[in-house]
Protein backbone atom coordinates (compact mmCIF):
# COMPACT_ATOMS: atom_id res chain seq x y z
CA UNK A 1 0.00 0.00 0.00
CA UNK A 2 2.66 2.47 1.09
CA UNK A 3 4.68 1.85 -2.05
CA UNK A 4 2.03 3.62 -4.08
CA UNK A 5 2.72 6.90 -2.35
CA UNK A 6 6.43 6.95 -3.17
CA UNK A 7 7.22 8.81 -6.37
CA UNK A 8 10.41 6.89 -7.11
CA UNK A 9 9.10 3.41 -6.46
CA UNK A 10 9.89 1.02 -9.27
CA UNK A 11 7.20 -0.15 -11.67
CA UNK A 12 6.79 -3.52 -9.96
CA UNK A 13 6.49 -1.95 -6.56
CA UNK A 14 4.02 0.64 -7.69
CA UNK A 15 1.76 -1.77 -9.52
CA UNK A 16 2.43 -4.70 -7.21
CA UNK A 17 -1.23 -5.27 -6.33
CA UNK A 18 -2.46 -4.99 -9.91
CA UNK A 19 0.30 -7.32 -11.12
CA UNK A 20 -0.42 -9.88 -8.41
CA UNK A 21 -4.15 -9.72 -9.12
CA UNK A 22 -3.65 -10.12 -12.85
CA UNK A 23 -1.28 -13.04 -12.31
CA UNK A 24 -3.79 -14.73 -10.00
CA UNK A 25 -6.57 -14.45 -12.58
CA UNK A 26 -4.27 -15.78 -15.30
CA UNK A 27 -3.15 -18.62 -13.04
CA UNK A 28 -6.76 -19.47 -12.29
CA UNK A 29 -7.67 -19.89 -15.95
CA UNK A 30 -4.47 -21.82 -16.74
CA UNK A 31 -5.08 -24.16 -13.80
CA UNK A 32 -8.68 -24.64 -14.90
CA UNK A 33 -7.56 -25.55 -18.42
CA UNK A 34 -4.75 -27.79 -17.18
CA UNK A 35 -6.95 -29.58 -14.65
CA UNK A 36 -8.56 -31.69 -17.36
CA UNK A 37 -5.20 -33.11 -18.43
CA UNK A 38 -5.39 -35.10 -15.19
CA UNK A 39 -9.09 -35.28 -14.44
CA UNK A 40 -11.44 -36.88 -17.01
CA UNK A 41 -13.47 -34.22 -18.82
CA UNK A 42 -17.26 -34.48 -18.87
CA UNK A 43 -18.74 -31.82 -21.18
CA UNK A 44 -22.23 -32.28 -19.73
CA UNK A 45 -21.06 -31.17 -16.34
CA UNK A 46 -18.17 -28.78 -16.67
CA UNK A 47 -16.35 -26.83 -19.31
CA UNK A 48 -12.89 -25.40 -19.82
CA UNK A 49 -11.64 -21.95 -20.83
CA UNK A 50 -10.77 -22.96 -24.41
CA UNK A 51 -14.33 -24.19 -25.00
CA UNK A 52 -15.77 -21.06 -23.38
CA UNK A 53 -13.70 -18.96 -25.80
CA UNK A 54 -15.08 -20.93 -28.75
CA UNK A 55 -18.60 -20.52 -27.37
CA UNK A 56 -18.00 -16.81 -27.06
CA UNK A 57 -16.94 -16.53 -30.67
CA UNK A 58 -20.06 -18.48 -31.74
CA UNK A 59 -22.35 -16.24 -29.72
CA UNK A 60 -20.72 -13.08 -31.04
CA UNK A 61 -20.73 -14.21 -34.65
CA UNK A 62 -24.37 -15.21 -34.59
CA UNK A 63 -25.21 -11.92 -32.85
CA UNK A 64 -27.25 -13.75 -30.19
CA UNK A 65 -25.25 -12.37 -27.30
CA UNK A 66 -25.53 -8.77 -28.41
CA UNK A 67 -29.22 -9.20 -29.11
CA UNK A 68 -29.87 -10.68 -25.67
CA UNK A 69 -27.83 -7.95 -23.99
CA UNK A 70 -29.74 -5.27 -25.87
CA UNK A 71 -33.05 -6.82 -24.84
CA UNK A 72 -31.99 -6.92 -21.18
CA UNK A 73 -30.54 -3.43 -21.23
CA UNK A 74 -33.90 -1.78 -21.98
CA UNK A 75 -35.73 -2.70 -18.73
CA UNK A 76 -32.48 -2.26 -16.79
CA UNK A 77 -32.00 1.35 -17.82
CA UNK A 78 -35.69 2.24 -17.88
CA UNK A 79 -36.12 0.89 -14.35
CA UNK A 80 -33.01 2.65 -13.07
CA UNK A 81 -34.05 5.89 -14.72
CA UNK A 82 -37.49 5.73 -13.14
CA UNK A 83 -35.88 4.91 -9.80
CA UNK A 84 -33.74 8.06 -9.98
CA UNK A 85 -36.70 10.21 -11.08
CA UNK A 86 -38.85 9.00 -8.19
CA UNK A 87 -36.23 8.21 -5.55
CA UNK A 88 -34.20 11.42 -5.57
CA UNK A 89 -37.05 13.94 -5.06
CA UNK A 90 -38.71 11.65 -2.53
CA UNK A 91 -35.42 11.26 -0.66
CA UNK A 92 -34.82 15.01 -0.64
CA UNK A 93 -38.29 15.76 0.70
CA UNK A 94 -38.06 12.96 3.28
CA UNK A 95 -34.72 14.27 4.47
CA UNK A 96 -35.64 17.94 4.53
CA UNK A 97 -39.22 17.97 5.84
CA UNK A 98 -38.74 16.30 9.19
CA UNK A 99 -42.37 15.25 9.59
CA UNK A 100 -42.59 13.75 6.13
CA UNK A 101 -39.45 11.83 7.02
CA UNK A 102 -41.09 10.55 10.21
CA UNK A 103 -44.21 9.60 8.30
CA UNK A 104 -42.61 7.74 5.43
CA UNK A 105 -39.47 6.29 6.96
CA UNK A 106 -41.03 3.20 8.62
CA UNK A 107 -43.01 2.38 5.49
CA UNK A 108 -39.95 2.62 3.28
CA UNK A 109 -37.87 0.61 5.74
CA UNK A 110 -40.43 -2.19 5.64
CA UNK A 111 -40.33 -2.18 1.84
CA UNK A 112 -36.55 -2.01 1.75
CA UNK A 113 -36.09 -4.84 4.23
CA UNK A 114 -38.64 -7.16 2.71
CA UNK A 115 -37.46 -9.32 -0.16
CA UNK A 116 -39.51 -7.56 -2.82
CA UNK A 117 -38.24 -10.07 -5.34
CA UNK A 118 -40.94 -12.24 -3.78
CA UNK A 119 -43.52 -10.17 -5.64
CA UNK A 120 -41.89 -10.97 -8.97
CA UNK A 121 -44.17 -13.92 -9.81
CA UNK A 122 -47.17 -11.69 -9.27
CA UNK A 123 -45.73 -8.82 -11.31
CA UNK A 124 -44.84 -11.16 -14.14
CA UNK A 125 -48.37 -12.55 -14.23
CA UNK A 126 -49.86 -9.10 -14.02
CA UNK A 127 -47.64 -7.16 -16.43
CA UNK A 128 -46.53 -9.94 -18.69
CA UNK A 129 -43.11 -11.30 -19.53
CA UNK A 130 -42.04 -8.35 -21.65
CA UNK A 131 -40.27 -5.11 -20.92
CA UNK A 132 -43.04 -3.67 -18.70
CA UNK A 133 -42.92 -6.44 -16.08
CA UNK A 134 -39.12 -6.43 -15.93
CA UNK A 135 -38.96 -2.63 -15.72
CA UNK A 136 -41.33 -2.62 -12.77
CA UNK A 137 -39.32 -5.30 -10.96
CA UNK A 138 -36.10 -3.34 -11.58
CA UNK A 139 -37.70 -0.11 -10.42
CA UNK A 140 -39.12 -1.60 -7.22
CA UNK A 141 -35.71 -2.99 -6.27
CA UNK A 142 -33.61 0.00 -7.31
CA UNK A 143 -35.64 2.90 -5.93
CA UNK A 144 -34.90 2.34 -2.23
CA UNK A 145 -31.12 2.85 -2.25
CA UNK A 146 -31.74 6.23 -3.85
CA UNK A 147 -34.40 7.22 -1.32
CA UNK A 148 -32.35 6.25 1.72
CA UNK A 149 -29.03 7.58 0.48
CA UNK A 150 -30.45 10.90 -0.64
CA UNK A 151 -32.42 11.47 2.55
CA UNK A 152 -29.36 10.76 4.69
CA UNK A 153 -27.44 13.12 2.40
CA UNK A 154 -29.96 15.87 3.10
CA UNK A 155 -29.70 15.28 6.83
CA UNK A 156 -25.94 15.78 6.57
CA UNK A 157 -26.31 19.16 4.89
CA UNK A 158 -24.49 21.98 6.64
CA UNK A 159 -27.15 24.00 8.53
CA UNK A 160 -24.98 27.08 8.21
CA UNK A 161 -25.55 27.11 4.45
CA UNK A 162 -29.30 26.95 4.99
CA UNK A 163 -29.17 29.84 7.43
CA UNK A 164 -27.04 31.89 5.05
CA UNK A 165 -29.51 31.40 2.20
CA UNK A 166 -32.40 32.27 4.51
CA UNK A 167 -30.63 35.37 5.85
CA UNK A 168 -30.04 36.60 2.33
CA UNK A 169 -33.72 36.31 1.59
CA UNK A 170 -33.73 32.91 -0.09
CA UNK A 171 -37.00 31.04 -0.26
CA UNK A 172 -37.72 27.37 0.24
CA UNK A 173 -37.24 26.86 -3.50
CA UNK A 174 -33.74 28.37 -3.33
CA UNK A 175 -32.85 26.04 -0.49
CA UNK A 176 -33.93 23.07 -2.57
CA UNK A 177 -32.17 24.15 -5.75
CA UNK A 178 -29.04 25.81 -4.37
CA UNK A 179 -28.24 23.70 -1.33
CA UNK A 180 -30.10 20.43 -1.09
CA UNK A 181 -29.88 19.18 -4.64
CA UNK A 182 -26.17 19.97 -5.20
CA UNK A 183 -25.15 18.56 -1.86
CA UNK A 184 -26.91 15.24 -2.33
CA UNK A 185 -25.22 14.57 -5.68
CA UNK A 186 -22.47 12.40 -4.14
CA UNK A 187 -25.13 10.47 -2.24
CA UNK A 188 -27.05 9.86 -5.47
CA UNK A 189 -23.94 8.36 -7.02
CA UNK A 190 -23.31 6.24 -3.94
CA UNK A 191 -26.92 5.09 -4.08
CA UNK A 192 -26.53 4.28 -7.76
CA UNK A 193 -23.69 1.89 -6.94
CA UNK A 194 -26.01 -0.17 -4.74
CA UNK A 195 -29.00 0.27 -7.03
CA UNK A 196 -27.13 -1.08 -10.05
CA UNK A 197 -26.56 -4.41 -8.32
CA UNK A 198 -30.20 -4.68 -7.30
CA UNK A 199 -31.33 -3.68 -10.78
CA UNK A 200 -29.26 -6.52 -12.25
CA UNK A 201 -31.00 -8.92 -9.86
CA UNK A 202 -34.34 -7.52 -11.03
CA UNK A 203 -33.53 -8.12 -14.69
CA UNK A 204 -32.30 -11.64 -14.03
CA UNK A 205 -35.29 -12.57 -11.88
CA UNK A 206 -37.67 -11.28 -14.52
CA UNK A 207 -35.89 -13.20 -17.24
CA UNK A 208 -35.39 -16.44 -15.35
CA UNK A 209 -39.08 -16.55 -14.65
CA UNK A 210 -40.55 -16.23 -18.01
CA UNK A 211 -39.00 -14.57 -21.00
CA UNK A 212 -38.25 -15.48 -24.54
CA UNK A 213 -35.09 -13.42 -24.88
CA UNK A 214 -32.56 -11.54 -22.79
CA UNK A 215 -29.32 -12.51 -21.11
CA UNK A 216 -31.01 -14.17 -18.12
CA UNK A 217 -33.13 -16.26 -20.41
CA UNK A 218 -30.02 -17.19 -22.42
CA UNK A 219 -28.27 -18.46 -19.28
CA UNK A 220 -31.15 -20.62 -18.13
CA UNK A 221 -31.81 -21.92 -21.68
CA UNK A 222 -28.18 -22.93 -22.19
CA UNK A 223 -28.36 -24.63 -18.81
CA UNK A 224 -31.44 -26.54 -19.88
CA UNK A 225 -29.78 -27.84 -23.03
CA UNK A 226 -26.46 -28.57 -21.25
CA UNK A 227 -24.56 -26.10 -23.43
CA UNK A 228 -22.24 -25.36 -20.57
CA UNK A 229 -19.60 -23.55 -22.62
CA UNK A 230 -22.07 -20.96 -23.90
CA UNK A 231 -23.71 -20.74 -20.46
CA UNK A 232 -20.32 -19.86 -18.94
CA UNK A 233 -19.73 -17.33 -21.70
CA UNK A 234 -22.99 -15.58 -20.76
CA UNK A 235 -22.27 -15.78 -17.01
CA UNK A 236 -18.81 -14.30 -17.53
CA UNK A 237 -20.35 -11.51 -19.61
CA UNK A 238 -22.76 -10.65 -16.80
CA UNK A 239 -19.87 -10.69 -14.31
CA UNK A 240 -17.81 -8.34 -16.49
CA UNK A 241 -20.77 -5.98 -16.92
CA UNK A 242 -21.46 -5.98 -13.19
CA UNK A 243 -17.83 -5.24 -12.34
CA UNK A 244 -17.55 -2.51 -14.98
CA UNK A 245 -20.73 -0.81 -13.76
CA UNK A 246 -19.92 -1.00 -10.04
CA UNK A 247 -16.24 -0.11 -10.36
CA UNK A 248 -17.08 2.54 -12.94
CA UNK A 249 -19.42 4.26 -10.52
CA UNK A 250 -16.83 3.91 -7.75
CA UNK A 251 -14.27 5.54 -10.04
CA UNK A 252 -16.73 8.32 -10.94
CA UNK A 253 -17.30 8.88 -7.24
CA UNK A 254 -13.58 9.30 -6.65
CA UNK A 255 -13.11 11.51 -9.69
CA UNK A 256 -16.10 13.79 -9.19
CA UNK A 257 -16.25 14.02 -5.40
CA UNK A 258 -12.67 13.53 -4.22
CA UNK A 259 -13.44 15.08 -0.82
CA UNK A 260 -15.75 12.20 -0.03
CA UNK A 261 -13.15 9.48 -0.50
CA UNK A 262 -12.71 7.49 2.65
CA UNK A 263 -16.12 8.27 4.06
Amino acid sequence: MAAQDLPHASFIERYRNAVLGGLAVLLFFVAWQALFLIVPFNPLFITKPSLIATGYVDLLESGDLLHDLAVSAVPFFLGLFAAVIVGVPLGIVMGWRVRIGYALDPLMTVFYASPLVALAPLLVIFFGVGTAGKTIIVFSLAVFPFIFNVSSGVRAVDRLLVNVVRSLGGRERDIYLKILFPSVLPYIVAGARIAVGRALIGVLVGEFFAASEGIGHAISRFGDIFAIDRMFACILTVMVIAVVLTEGIRWAERAAFPWRVGR
Partner: peptide, 23 residues
Protein backbone atom coordinates in the same frame (compact mmCIF):
# COMPACT_ATOMS: atom_id res chain seq x y z
CA UNK B 1 -2.79 -12.97 -0.68
CA UNK B 2 -5.08 -9.97 -0.54
CA UNK B 3 -3.79 -8.62 -3.85
CA UNK B 4 -4.18 -12.05 -5.44
CA UNK B 5 -7.73 -12.64 -4.23
CA UNK B 6 -8.91 -9.09 -4.80
CA UNK B 7 -10.04 -9.49 -8.45
CA UNK B 8 -12.08 -12.57 -7.60
CA UNK B 9 -13.71 -10.97 -4.58
CA UNK B 10 -14.52 -7.81 -6.52
CA UNK B 11 -16.00 -9.81 -9.39
CA UNK B 12 -18.10 -12.13 -7.26
CA UNK B 13 -19.25 -9.36 -4.98
CA UNK B 14 -20.37 -7.12 -7.83
CA UNK B 15 -22.21 -9.89 -9.67
CA UNK B 16 -25.68 -10.86 -8.53
CA UNK B 17 -25.25 -14.41 -7.25
CA UNK B 18 -28.52 -15.25 -8.93
CA UNK B 19 -26.65 -15.56 -12.21
CA UNK B 20 -25.02 -18.77 -10.98
CA UNK B 21 -28.31 -20.38 -10.07
CA UNK B 22 -28.89 -22.30 -13.33
CA UNK B 23 -25.33 -23.60 -13.12
Amino acid sequence: LNAMFDPFITAFNATPRLVFLPL
